[in-house]
Design a protein around this nucleic acid. Structure first.
Length: 192
DNA sequence: GTTGTCAAGAGGACCG
DNA sequence: CGGTCCTCTTGACAAC
């Protein structure tokens, strides 16, 4: 599908400094089946107990450590990452978009966040990247479709012309000639 | 009041 | 079976 890639220079809205769109995620239109996780270094991260949160449900979900200033059980407060935190996370994401356990811990330590928060940020970031890629893919397909439609219309016109020439030639009793270079038929005064 | 963004919750899928 | 991922949803907050 080189034609797809050739028209790919759509500069959508300058995705924050051009968004690392991962082509591996592209064209996963079915959605039904999940695309294989990005083959990242460290592949599948070591396991750990990190998410008892889920198992506990409701209780002290995300973490006991507050830090986000989250009141336990109350309306959750919206955490807003600082510019520095976001920048460091972004930088880390660009080097590889999946974290190993150690990297998560390190990042969390550096940022003063909980590992779970770092994990969530990466999850959301991957989702955003994928969404952007899907939008780009849609745009590419739309253009490709347009081009195919144009080609189709042009070919139909040529076919109709050829038929017309054949008809005219037959009616006039004249002989059709075939252009030696393009091999197209021409008759009467419609010289090739 | 509406809308967009984003952190976080929830649940299912996958893997070792 | 536990840990991690993906996906969808929810809720807080900002901008209009």
């Amino acid at each position: 599908m080189s034609s797809l890639t050739t028209i790919s220079s759509t500069s959508k809205e300058s995705l924050e400094a051009e968004e690392l769109v991962d082509t591996r995620l592209s064209l996963v239109i079915g959605a039904g089946s999940q695309p294989p996780p990005a083959p990242v270094a460290a592949g599948h991260v070591t396991r750990q107990h990190a998410k008892r949160a889920r198992a506990v449900h409701g209780g002290s979900d995300v973490d006991d450590g507050d830090d986000g200033g989250d009141a336990a059980g109350r309306a959750r407060k919206k955490l807003r990452l600082t510019a520095e935190q976001a920048a460091l996370l972004e930088k880390s994401f660009r080097s590889h978009n999946v974290l190993s356990h150690g990297e998560k811990q390190d990042l969390a330590g550096q940022l003063g966040l909980k590992p779970r928060q770092v994990e969530v940020w990466f999850q959301n970031r991957r989702a955003r990247t994928k969404l952007k890629q899907t939008e780009l893919d849609c745009e590419l397909l739309r253009r490709w479709c347009e081009r195919l439609s144009d080609d189709n219309a042009r070919l139909r016109r040529e076919l109709a012309e050829t038929h017309a020439v054949l008809l005219v030639g037959g009616a006039q009793g004249s002989r059709l000639t075939r252009c030696p270079s393009c091999n197209r038929l021409a008759g009467g005064r419609r010289a090739a």
